[in-house]
């Protein structure tokens, strides 16, 4: 790798980290929106059933 090893490995490392971060945040975002909506729908259903 010559003298460049630290630079090359660090760029590939950072790239992997960024890709993984993106996957995690995307999944977490979808899950949190879904859960919020589920709570909301459940609460509406409960309120409607009380009326």
């Amino acid at each position: 790798m010559g003298g460049y090893a630290p630079y090359v490995w660090s760029t590939f490392g950072i790239t992997l980290v960024v890709l993984v971060i993106n996957v995690i945040t995307a999944k977490r975002r979808l899950r949190s929106v879904r859960e919020q909506l589920k709570l909301r729908v459940a609460r509406d259903a409960r309120r409607r059933s009380k009326e």
């Binding site: 890709l19 993106n22 995307a26 979808l30």
Partner: peptide, 30 residues
């Protein structure tokens, strides 16, 4: 990778923007 990631994120954004729509309340029923 971007395309797949985008579709996942778009799902979340669509759910948020269509939160009042009937089809969302349908699939979100417990």
């Amino acid at each position: 990778f971007f395309a797949g990631l985008l579709l996942q994120r778009v799902q979340a954004e669509v759910l948020e923007r269509e939160r009042n729509a009937r089809w969302v309340t349908e699939i979100m029923r417990p």
